[in-house]
Design a protein around this nucleic acid. Structure first.
Lengths: 155, 155
DNA sequence: CTTGTTAATGAGAATTATTCTCATTAAAAA
DNA sequence: TTTTTAATGAGAATAATTCTCATTAACAAG
């Protein structure tokens, strides 16, 4: 029940293949979880979930794979101020590319779409100019706003 | 030689005072160092420098103060991908407010001024719209671009 | 200036996210 | 099926940060 043909070959298969990475069970579990939730999970949350849907994988395997997946661009890693990293799936399509509003107090993370107010155009222009000016190959970016969410404003 | 009158009462005195924080020796040393270098230092770098110019302060004192200073808005904290936090002085004036280009490989950090290409205007507009839409009090933001610097592109 | 109150300190122990080690396992090629 | 070698899992090791607690020093009040 846990083989490729059951779900069909996933979108990430090619990318893994191109990087000579095997499609292992924990690796698939991590990607599937991140894809399904669409949330920003910590390594430990991912580890817990993986242990549910797949044979229980070691925490170090989860870390190792997250590092790999970030490196080959399938996953985004970012930091919400508390000291554990968060990970989310990185289908960088215009529809679901987004940035974050992060509450300093309760650490809630609100996603907002990057495709309003010309944000996309602005970023593209900015990347182009910065690349040229500093001779820097920009691969991705992180735009986060920090402050107080609705609930925390009142307390 | 290490008293207030020697350097004059510093710009941060008021802010500390308003928060009922004493103007202690290590606290001043940290602020002075961050102000002088204008760099993004890690807690440990700051600790080393503090130990030079002031009586040697404990590392925990440095951490405690950095946390405080971030909380009352005198210092900015951010994360450059390796896992130690960086700190920089937070005089949020238009002239020196800036964002970062961070090299994934060698961790070099390039500052670029936020006051070109209408970046300031764009951010301001964005903050206003997001605040309203999500009822979120935005206090600051973090805009970083990640990629490869000039040197690392070639290797 | 002296004294009393209490925030702040310093040294090191404790914590915790992440990385490393290494013997074992299982993808994928032959 | 066999072979090769990337990947795994368990736990030890690392390192940044936080905590503890007895001691010190800001600074307000007399």
């Amino acid at each position: 029940m846990d083989n490729l043909s059951a779900k069909g070959i996933s979108w990430y298969y090619d990318r893994l293949n191109r990087h000579c990475c095997r499609l292992t069970k924990p690796r698939r579990a991590i990607l599937d979880i991140l894809e399904d939730t669409g949330e920003h999970l910590s390594a430990e949350q991912i580890h817990r979930q993986v242990s549910k849907i797949s044979t229980n994988a070691g925490l170090s395997t989860v870390y190792r794979n997250l590092e790999l997946l970030v490196r080959i661009g399938l996953v985004w890693k970012f930091d919400a101020g508390d000291k554990k990293a968060r990970y989310e799936i990185a289908k960088r399509t215009d529809e679901n590319h987004h940035h974050h509003l992060i509450c300093k107090k309760c650490n809630t993370i609100i996603d907002y779409s990057a495709s309003v107010d010309n944000e996309k155009d602005f970023i593209k222009m900015r990347e182009k100019n910065l690349s040229r000016k500093y001779n820097f190959k920009i691969e991705n970016h992180c735009i986060d706003f920090f402050g107080l969410c609705y609930k925390c404003r009142k307390s």
